[in-house]
Structure formats: structure tokens, C-alpha cells
């Protein structure tokens, strides 16, 4: 937007310049927060990582074997499960938030645990959000791998049950990519954690919810600082995906 305005020399000193200054000011303040390891900022980043890493860990423990089992075993309703997983993959985060909210609220089935508005609630929401992604991608990876390996593994004396860990291990490079994709989605989403966590300061405030709040309050510095960190995280995740692929090609053709 600013680019267009700059071409008009008369408006260079107009209100837009003020915004530009605000913007520059905000960036400077954001960088300052980053460089000084501002404690509020670090707390938020720490909680975000804690929540998303815990969620991705639990989602992997459920999603990897689940996806592999759907790929390997013939059981009634298997096709339904596949379709369901793919559908759940695209579930809007707010819907997940709503469902988890309803089940954790006082009157819900898990209300007695009093988990609503706690980091645990946010972890649960992200697990619900990410498990289908990991399971669906795992199913695809393992199914392709099984096509290639089936005769060989059966010939060597395996059966579908003993092949499951084998295939998870041999698919490890593709599966790491699936897990990183899940992590990307977990750490970037805002709707679900906002609903079940409530964005309570020093309690359930994570990067995405903090950005949403600070922008609406007008405190751009913190929002930008967090935005930069999220961006770096996303770059880092994608870089890691790339590096894993490269390593896989180099080592295992």
C-alpha cells in the first residue's frame, strides 16, 4: 500500500508517512524485545512451544500407528476410516475448539477435570487438530511403502503386524515430514487455542492468540516480535523438511 502512495510526491509527507514511522517504530521495538529476551515475550514463546510440542508428541504416538494400521490391516470399515481421516484433516480449528470446549466445559463429559482455560486444554485441542493430519499422511506413506515392500517382507518371514514397525522405520524420512507438517499447523493455528485456552495472561497466552490480541489493542511491537518468531519457526520447519528430504535422498536413494 505504501509503495503506491510514495509515487505521489504530495502525499509523501501526509498521514502515510506517520504510519510508516509507526511501522518502523514497531519493528525497532519488536527487535528490541527479541534482542533483550523480553520476559513477557519469552514466556509466551515458551508456552507456545510447550503446548505445540506436547501436542505433536501425543499426536504422533496416536497418529503414526493408527495411520499405519489403516494402511496395513484389512478390517470392516477400513475405507470409511480413510475417508474420515482425510475429512478430519481439513477440520476448521474453530470447530475443533468448539468441540473440545463443549466436552471440557463444566457441563460437558470431561467437565469434572476442570481443564478448560488451561494449557492442558490447549494441548488437547491441538492433539485433536493434528492427529488426523499425521494419521492421514502416515497412511499414505505406509500404503505406498507396503506396495513396494510387501512381497519382500512376507518372503523374509514378516506378517502385517511385524511389518508395521518395519515400515514406520523405513518410512521415517517421509514421516518426519508429516510430523513437521503437523507441528506447523499446530503452532500456527489460533482459533482452537483461543476458544479453549482463553488467552489468559501468564497462563494460556500463546504466540498466535497474543498476536490477535495485541493487534486489536494496538500494541504492534509485541505482535510484530511474535510474528517474526512465528515466521522464523515456519522457515525453520520448512528448512528442516527440506534437509530431511535431502538426507534421505543422499543416504537411501
Amino acid at each position: 500500500m505504501a509503495m503506491v502512495e510514495i509515487q505521489d510526491t504530495k502525499t509523501v509527507k501526509g498521514p502515510d508517512t506517520g504510519n510508516m514511522n509507526d511501522f518502523g517504530e514497531a519493528i525497532r521495538a519488536a527487535l528490541n524485545l527479541l534482542i533483550t529476551f523480553d520476559s513477557d515475550l519469552m514466556e509466551i514463546v515458551g508456552l507456545s512451544l510447550h503446548v505445540s510440542l506436547a501436542a505433536i508428541f501425543i499426536a504422533s504416538i496416536i497418529g503414526l500407528p493408527l495411520g499405519a494400521a489403516i494402511a496395513l490391516f484389512r478390517f470392516p470399515g477400513r475405507r470409511f476410516f480413510s475417508v474420515l481421516l482425510n475429512a478430519l484433516m481439513g477440520l476448521p480449528p474453530v470447530v475443533v475448539g468448539l468441540i473440545v470446549y463443549l466436552s471440557l466445559s463444566r457441563s460437558g463429559p470431561f467437565g469434572v477435570f476442570g481443564l478448560l482455560y488451561s494449557p492442558t486444554a490447549m494441548i488437547i485441542a491441538q492433539v485433536v487438530l493434528v492427529t488426523p493430519i499425521i494419521a492421514a499422511l502416515t497412511r499414505q506413506v505406509i500404503e505406498d511403502l507396503w506396495m513396494e515392500y510387501k512381497d519382500q517382507l512376507l518372503s523374509l518371514g514378516a506378517n502385517p503386524v511385524s511389518a508395521l514397525p518395519t515400515l514406520l522405520w523405513d518410512g521415517r524420512f517421509s514421516l518426519v515430514t508429516a510430523i513437521l507438517a503437523g507441528f506447523g499447523r499446530a503452532s500456527a493455528e489460533v482459533g482452537a487455542v483461543m476458544i479453549v485456552g482463553g488467552n489468559i495472561d501468564h497462563m494460556t497466552r500463546v504466540m498466535t492468540t497474543a498476536i490477535a490480541l495485541e493487534v486489536s489493542k494496538g500494541d504492534l511491537a509485541l505482535a510484530l516480535g511474535l510474528g517474526i518468531i512465528l515466521l522464523c519457526l515456519s522457515l525453520g520447519v520448512n528448512g528442516a523438511v527440506y534437509a530431511v528430504k535431502e538426507a534421505a535422498i543422499r543416504r537411501h536413494a
Binding site: Y149, S155, G157, S162, D170, R172
Partner: peptide, 30 residues
């Protein structure tokens, strides 16, 4: 019967692990 026979397929598939781990694998299954 299954474990006392073996086959070298026309297109053998190598597991994504080391050469020796490939030989260990069917022995572990046994």
C-alpha cells in the same frame, strides 16, 4: 514351512538401513 524357506526375488527390495541390518532383519523375525 514359511520360516524354513527363502526366496530371492527377481527385484529384491533393500530395507532403508545398513547392509548388515538388512541381513539381521529376517533373523530377528525368526
Amino acid at each position: 514351512v514359511r520360516l524354513n524357506q527363502a526366496m530371492m526375488l527377481q527385484r529384491p527390495v533393500m530395507l532403508r538401513r545398513s547392509v548388515s541390518a538388512n541381513i539381521h532383519y529376517p533373523l530377528k523375525l525368526r
